[in-house]
Amino acid sequence: MPALDRLHRLHRFAWPLAVANLVANIGIVVTGGAVRLTGSGLGCPTWPRCTDESYVAHGELGVHGAIEFGNRMLTWALVVIAIACFVAVGRTGRTRATVLAAVVALGIPAQAVLGGITVLTDLNPWIVAGHFLVSMAIIGVCVALLDELRGPTRPASDRLRPLAWLVLAATWVVLYLGTVVTGSGPHSGDLESRRTGLDPQVMSHVHAAAVYALLALTLGLAVLAHGLGATVVRRAAGALLALLLVQGVLGFVQYFTDLPEVLVGLHMLGAALVSAAVTWTLLSTMSRRAEWAQPKSSGSSATATNSSDR
């Protein structure tokens, strides 16, 4: 049957859909940032409807309503991509990859609910922070899925892995403190939304101190990887270090220029890229001995063998 044949061939789309998953989840971070930076966080003042009478924005809500509603609609695009990715990856017969794809597919509607809670709580800064951090976690899972599908062959780097875990932990401390700084600063998403009440200047210095520690740890990992001849780890740590330096420069510039919206938006994009890079850095210390293999299709099922599923 033609329909069944097309289903068997879905595994061919696993890789491009996994890439689309990552790109889309990074993109929603940027568009979500645009909602907040334009003061459109309550453009649709309730959830799941846009208003008490309508699920869609209307003219009376103005440009803020259009921006917020547009961002909500993008979530549906993410859902479609994530479900298609899950189905395609499932056809490869690779258990771990399928689980990772399922986590992404389930994480996106969970994010939508959390986003709704942020609206219902009038953009409570602590809930907004959680909403952002869950996106960072989903991005990390997307990277793990890509590595599971077509990651490069590499040996285990047992001596480097503990330091890589420490870099990951430090990155998450930095990401969290970044949300605390944001929650105490001026870009609340709506003029009526409350802030955390913390001193934004003090929190900025605390955040910067954590960044310095992260830079030192990442540099140490890159240097140690170079000394041990761990090429994959060295490249991953080097890329992460470069991103952190760019993020640091952006952070300083936006701090001393009163947080212009464009720079804050770029800083959010940088945070998403850092989440992806630090995940890859940790994965690079773990062995991967099998290259991508096309699954075999027969009858009503497709199977594949991957040494990482041992």
Rank of each mutant, 00 (worst) to 15 (best):
A57H: 06
P109R: 07
P48W: 08
G130N: 07
R289E: 13
V99Y: 10
H58P: 06
W280P: 07
G248F: 09
E68M: 07
A57N: 05
I67T: 02
E68D: 10
A129M: 03
P2K: 13
L114M: 09
V246S: 12
F132N: 02
A242F: 13
R310M: 14
T196Q: 00
L219G: 12
G130L: 09
G70D: 01
T171N: 11
D122W: 12
S157C: 14
R310G: 14
A101T: 03
D199W: 05
Q247I: 00
L177M: 12
V30W: 08
L10S: 12
E261K: 15
R310D: 15
L37P: 02
Q294R: 14
L61T: 01
H207Y: 04
F256C: 13
L269M: 08
L149T: 08
I26Q: 07
G33H: 01
L145H: 00
A101I: 04
R91E: 13
H131N: 07
L133Y: 10
A82V: 02
S301L: 15
E261F: 14
P16L: 03
A277H: 02
P200I: 06
G70T: 00
A105H: 03
A88E: 03
L123K: 00
A170G: 10
L243Y: 10
A164Y: 00
H187N: 12
S188G: 11
G27M: 07
V35L: 02
R36W: 05
L241I: 14
L259T: 12
T95M: 13
D309I: 01
V262S: 15
S297L: 09
L149Y: 01
M1N: 13
V206R: 08
V63H: 13
L37D: 05
L22D: 02
D147R: 01
V206M: 12
G93T: 07
V63M: 13
I139L: 08
L168W: 11
P295L: 03
D5E: 15
L245F: 13
H267I: 03
M1D: 15
